[in-house]
């Protein structure tokens, strides 16, 4: 099925306790080459029909209005799944 992928990340200046917890675990496990982890969200929107400029625009609207909260998060990408 045609799919649009939306990716949302917490803003850089916003503390990400989930990412910090994972980063701490990696350090404990000896993976010292990774100094930080931030966790975001990936949404896969199944499209009824082909992905068009219109469906991408609609995806952008819901990505900004519903899938993310602009106070704490950024929409980092909207694209058709390959």
């Amino acid at each position: 099925m045609p799919t649009i992928v939306v990716e949302v990340m917490p803003k850089a200046e916003i503390l990400d306790p989930q990412g910090k917890a994972v980063a701490g675990a990696l350090t404990r496990l000896g993976h010292n080459q990774f100094s930080g982890v931030r966790i975001g969200k990936r949404f896969e929107l199944t499209v009824d029909g082909p992905v068009t400029a219109e469906t991408l625009a609609a995806a952008k609207t819901i990505a900004e209005d519903i899938l993310s909260n602009s106070v704490i998060e950024d929409v980092v990408s909207i694209s058709e799944a390959k």
């Binding site: 917490p10 916003i14 503390l15 306790p17 989930q18 910090k20 917890a21 909260n69 106070v71 704490i72």
Partner: peptide
């Protein structure tokens, strides 16, 4: 105004 995030203590 504002928003909410996970507690800083996790």
């Amino acid at each position: 105004p504002g928003a909410h995030g996970r507690n800083d203590c996790g």
